[in-house]
Design a protein around this nucleic acid. Structure first.
Length: 783
DNA sequence: GTAGGGTTAG
């Protein structure tokens, strides 16, 4: 009778209402008591229909006699809780079972209970209980143990369980395999897969769905194609999960053509198929195809989800499309995902950050009801990438102090550029120490940021040492060390490193060539720079982007070949941007070419009229050649257009503290300001005795001569240097950072100061490093 | 009658 009723259930109770009616009927007729096995069937039925009625929950609280409650009911109840994501209810049901006088868990109990374990200690307890009760030889229990340990990243324990299993079926192999895959242990996963081949355990659709996506992390296209072939041979490629895995793999490998082919050949696509392909197009820069696919998807019967929009947010940020960005944000808001889903919130913050909309990013961050470590990383990165180093540090410190979140790779990679930016060596070293402690020193992303930090903080030697120590199969670390030598004016070494890179077979990318070309330009290696610009296109098939063009203009311009630079601009196939014309204007200032300077500044004021930096450059150029009416004209333009000059500031790290000085009147005066000013006076007298003559052409204000001298003496770089002199022991090299280009008069003055104080003085400005030693500067006065 | 292993992400 009970068996017949059980068979009837699924066909009768197709909706919750019918299930409830049936339940009431069984209660009234007393059949539920007469046939105890029906309770289990009811629980499973309710669970499948998406409900756990309170009458069944009370199963936990009344004391069922052993005759009406079966172990199957308990198992079904625990399972129902797990599938409804209520692990703690599942566990308390389990404990209830353990204290039951007549029932004990069976082999069916352990797999579901293991799913409910929230921490490894609990998992271990259940493991030893299963061992004691003799259920570990069951393959289902074994596979569940493997899965449990893998979930907590304890792959060693998982492997041990696997090795000790008396019998292994495909499920057990798959459980260990997926453990490796989900913990990003690509090499181990491939190794295990090879073991499977040797042991003649044929894979199934689960095997392939697990292993295929992680092949992308190995960047092994051949292996990827091999897996695809194998899946086809076994007839597994027609399964949705396997096809999706293949799309994902090809997309991540950048083989969008292959990904598209798999996608197009699928008879049934789902959300994952669409998302994987859209994300692939977006990651590899094909924004228009990503958008096209998004619209195609909406026309079909597949509705976008959070992940679709995450890709879309990234795509719109890439093309800097303001309106697109807003509409993505609205789409996410209308569906309430912004509040519900951390990933969606993070994606919005990231999108605004990449579009340099810092306030919008911050607002989106503040609105998020729950934040995780990625949210904080995204905000920190937002500030540090957009040049707001102090804000980045402030957020990082706050997070450390109050949020108690675990620092991960992205946190370090986010905060390090902020310290590099300020030249805060001690703070940067603190992060280096931290990365060693959490085992991330050799992580390629963190190491690249550390190399960059040491190079930008003047410690090129330490940067090189670190570079020697880390794995360097990808271009990142190479780019950082090449750029490091570049800003220090060591172009020869940068070229050497590049040839080593070629020898080691590391593929350079477009960033490599930006670093390399700018290294050539800073070192005056004009021919080599032009050679590498050609090589980049012919040997490496990299089409120049605007930054490469700007490097070449800078290269020719700095070397005084202004006409060549101008001719080069004319040959460009794309419309030059402000970077390109800015490079030409900078060169015109160095070489005092007013005519061409004027031409470039006209272009600049057209493209980027708000950027004060170009007005300053133009004015400096006029001043250099003594055309004071030009200076006046620029000055009135700035006033007329109501532009604010970017405040200049310099920083110096003394005793692990970063001291910041602004040019001119200090709104928040340094406690030792008077002492600093006395030192400047003191130095000035000695400098003049050695022949220093102030160069007032760098004073843009229209004031009396003695006032001009005062203005030069209150430049931020001079305050920072003077502070360094009075607060460090003699012979200590002084290192400062200036947010704009160093002023020409300060540059000259620093040469004198290096003689008087017998110190090495290193000034990093927004452009490059200046090493002052015994009255000379490494830049050869061309900066 | 109840059980294990699978695809996309900031």
């Amino acid at each position: 009778m009970a068996v017949e009723l059980r068979r009837l259930f699924p066909s009768c109770a197709t909706t919750l209402r019918r299930a409830r009616a049936l339940h009431a009927l069984l209660l009234l007729s007393g059949r539920l008591v007469a046939y105890p096995s029906l309770t289990a069937t009811l629980i499973t039925l309710y669970s499948r229909l998406g409900d756990l009625p309170s009458s069944l929950l009370s199963f936990l609280h009344h004391r069922p006699s052993s005759s009406t409650t079966t172990i199957v009911s308990f198992n079904s109840l625990i399972s129902a809780f797990v599938s409804h994501r209520r692990p703690s209810s599942a566990l308390s049901a389990f404990h209830r079972l353990l204290s039951h006088p007549a029932l004990r868990p069976d082999a069916f109990t352990f797999p579901v209970v293991l799913k409910a374990c929230g921490d490894p200690q609990h998992g271990e307890k259940i493991h030893s209980l299963a061992l004691k009760m003799g259920f570990c030889s069951n393959v289902y229990v074994g596979a569940s143990l493997l899965h449990m340990y893998s979930r907590f990243g304890l792959l060693g324990c998982a492997r041990k369980v696997f090795d000790e299993m008396p019998e292994r079926d495909l499920g057990a192999w798959n459980a260990l395999l997926s453990g490796f895959c989900q913990n990003s242990r690509a090499a181990d996963a491939v190794g295990l897969f090879e073991e499977m081949v040797i042991e003649r355990v044929g894979g199934d659709k689960v095997t392939f769905a697990s292993i295929v996506p992680i092949i992308a992390f190995l960047e092994d296209q051949l292996l990827g194609a091999l897996m695809h072939v194998r899946a086809v041979k076994l007839g597994l490629d027609s399964y949705l999960f396997v096809s999706n895995a293949l799309i994902d793999m090809y997309a991540k490998l950048g083989c969008l053509g292959e990904a598209r082919r798999v996608f197009d050949e699928m008879l049934h696509k789902d959300l994952v198929s669409w998302n994987s392909l859209i994300s692939g197009y977006e990651q590899f820069g094909n924004v228009s195809l990503a958008l096209e696919l998004f619209h195609l998807m909406k026309e079909g019967d597949c509705q976008p989800d959070v992940l679709t929009l995450v890709s879309l947010a990234s795509a719109t940020a890439q093309c800097g499309d303001d309106r697109g960005g807003r509409s993505v944000h609205c789409y996410i808001m209308r569906r309430g995902w912004e509040m519900d889903d951390i990933i969606a919130g993070n994606a919005i913050v990231d999108m605004y950050s990449k579009m340099a909309k810092i306030e919008a990013a911050r607002n989106a961050f503040d609105r998020m009801p729950v934040k995780d470590i990625i949210s904080w990383n995204t905000l920190i990165t937002c500030y540090s990438q957009n040049g707001l180093a102090s804000e980045a540090i402030e957020v990082f410190d706050y997070m450390e102090k109050f949020e108690g979140l675990k620092t991960i790779q992205g946190t370090l990679a986010g905060i390090l550029p902020a310290y590099s930016h300020l030249g805060a060596l001690r703070q940067g070293m603190r992060i280096h120490g931290r990365s060693i402690r959490i085992g991330l020193e050799s992580d390629v992303f963190v190491a690249t940021c550390l190399i960059d930090m040491y190079a930008k903080c003047g410690k090129l030697g330490d940067a090189s040492l670190l570079f020697q120590k880390i794995p360097r199969k990808s271009s990142g670390p190479w780019n950082a060390i090449i750029a490091g030598h570049g800003v220090h004016g060591d172009g020869e070494e940068a070229l050497e490193i590049f040839s080593l890179m070629e020898i080691e077979g590391v593929k350079p990318d477009h960033v490599t060539f930006i670093s390399l070309l700018s290294a050539c330009s800073h070192a005056g290696l004009v021919d080599q720079g032009q050679k590498y610009f050609q090589l980049m296109q012919t040997s490496y098939g990299i089409q120049p982007i605007m930054k490469h063009y700007a490097c070449i203009v800078d290269l020719l311009g700095r070397a005084g070949r202004l006409n060549d630079a101008y001719e080069f601009i004319k040959t460009m196939r794309v419309k030059p941007d402000s970077g390109v014309w800015g490079a030409l204007l900078g060169a015109c200032r160095i070489h005092g070419n007013v005519e061409m300077g004027l031409l470039s500044s006209e272009k600049l004021f057209e493209i980027d009229p708000e950027n004060v930096g170009y007005y300053v450059l133009l004015s400096n150029m006029y001043a250099k050649v003594g055309k004071w009416e030009g200076v006046n004209k620029v000055r009135s333009m700035v006033r007329h257009r109501n532009l604010q000059k970017t405040p200049g500031w310099s920083s110096i790290e003394v005793n692990k503290k970063v001291n910041v000085f602004f040019t001119g009147n200090q709104t928040d005066p340094h406690p030792q300001l008077e002492e600093i000013q006395r030192e400047i006076e003191n130095l000035l007298a000695k400098m003049k005795a050695l022949g220093y003559v102030p160069d007032y052409s760098f004073v843009l204000q229209d004031v009396e001569e003695d006032e001009k001298e005062h203005i030069l003496a209150s430049h931020s770089e001079r305050l920072a240097i003077a502070f360094g002199i009075i607060s460090t022991s003699p012979e200590t090299p002084i290192q400062i950072y200036k947010n704009l280009r160093v002023c020409g008069d300060c540059h000259n003055a620093t040469k004198y100061i290096s003689i008087i104080t017998e110190r090495e003085i290193i000034v990093r400005d927004s452009n490059r490093f200046h090493h002052f030693k015994e009255g000379r500067c490494s830049c050869g006065d061309y900066w």
